[in-house]
């Protein structure tokens, strides 16, 4: 059994990837649970895609510097996030339609910028990430995201939870008026930081996967929000480690392997998890049928 995990100890790049992945899973767990509860999973995905043009342009100008690529990714990701909602409202489009227009535009521009690089930019790396090639800067960013999220989320947990589950009550309950907007700003700031940090490992197309998928799986394991966050963190870490091992042993693309393992966890959780899974619902129906006269 220990032998299965030997690559994490034998190869430095696997150790580095595991550390980065575990840090991102820890950062993503509370953010993902709140994103899913706020029904913003796809908005998070759109923002993840929107980092591409900034990352591509910065990589082109800086010769592939991780730091500049990160800053470029953060810039366009934030721009799309800040403008898509207001633009949708101004054009009287449904908000998800506005996000679709913006993120597809960002993806297209990003691919064009990357293709102009004449081989300087590795488009595959930008799109799909390179978890096994995480350098010190990217690893440090992942650890910072985990640390800041672990400190920041408890600070705004209470107003963020009420704002997520019953925003009208938060406004009218007589509590601090600033609490809701501040909690939202902190939450979306942490989400932007974690999405950009994940970008190096999973690329623009799948960077939000490590945040969203464990949170979706966690809903089948826990009923309360704190337990959902704990479950999402554990499932995320397991998914990262499993994905890295699959990638190592099968020579599969690492980002795709991690996301595939996380998707497998969602499927398994939806089948056999103790909370509202297909199995527990079937058992509940059978129990009711047996009790019927």
């Amino acid at each position: 059994m220990v032998g299965v995990f030997a690559p994490f100890f034998d190869y430095e790049f696997m150790t580095r990837a595991a550390l980065g992945g575990v840090a991102l899973a820890l950062a993503g767990a509370p953010l993902g649970v709140f994103l899913v509860m706020r029904r913003m999973s796809l908005v998070g995905d759109a923002v993840g895609h929107a980092v591409l043009p900034g990352a591509a342009a910065a990589a082109l100008l800086s010769g592939g510097s991780t730091l500049w690529t990160t800053l470029g990714a953060a810039l366009t990701g934030t721009m799309v996030f800040m403008t898509a909602g207001p633009a949708s409202r101004a054009l009287r489009l449904p908000e998800d339609a506005g996000f679709a227009v913006f993120y597809l535009t960002a993806l297209a521009i990003g691919v064009m910028i990357a293709s102009m690089g004449g081989g300087v930019i590795d488009l595959d790396k930008l799109l799909f990430g390179a978890a096994l090639a995480i350098d010190n800067t990217a690893l440090a960013l992942a650890c910072v995201a985990a640390l800041v999220t672990t400190i920041g989320m408890p600070l705004v947990y209470r107003p963020l939870l009420i704002d997520t589950l019953d925003p009208q009550f938060l406004r009218a309950s007589g509590g601090a008026k600033w609490a809701g907007p501040v909690a939202q700003s902190v939450f979306f700031g942490l989400l932007a930081l974690t999405t950009v940090a994940s970008f190096h490992a999973l690329g623009a197309l799948m960077s939000i996967g490590l945040t969203i998928l464990p949170a979706i799986a966690a809903r089948f394991w826990a009923k309360s929000v704190p337990l959902m966050i704990a479950s999402a963190a554990i499932l995320g870490m397991l998914g990262v480690l499993a994905g890295l091992l699959v990638s190592f042993n099968l020579a599969a693309p690492v980002g795709a392997a991690i996301v595939s393992c996380l998707v497998a966890m969602v499927l398994a959780s939806s089948l056999v998890g103790p909370n509202q899974s297909l199995l527990t619902r079937a058992l509940g129906r059978a129990s009711l049928a047996n009790r019927a006269p």
Partner: peptide, 16 residues
């Protein structure tokens, strides 16, 4: 303080 319960409370029906 004033408490208010609106006709359509914003509480999410699937709130955990």
């Amino acid at each position: 303080s004033i408490a208010w319960l609106s006709q359509s409370p914003s509480l999410r029906p699937d709130a955990p």
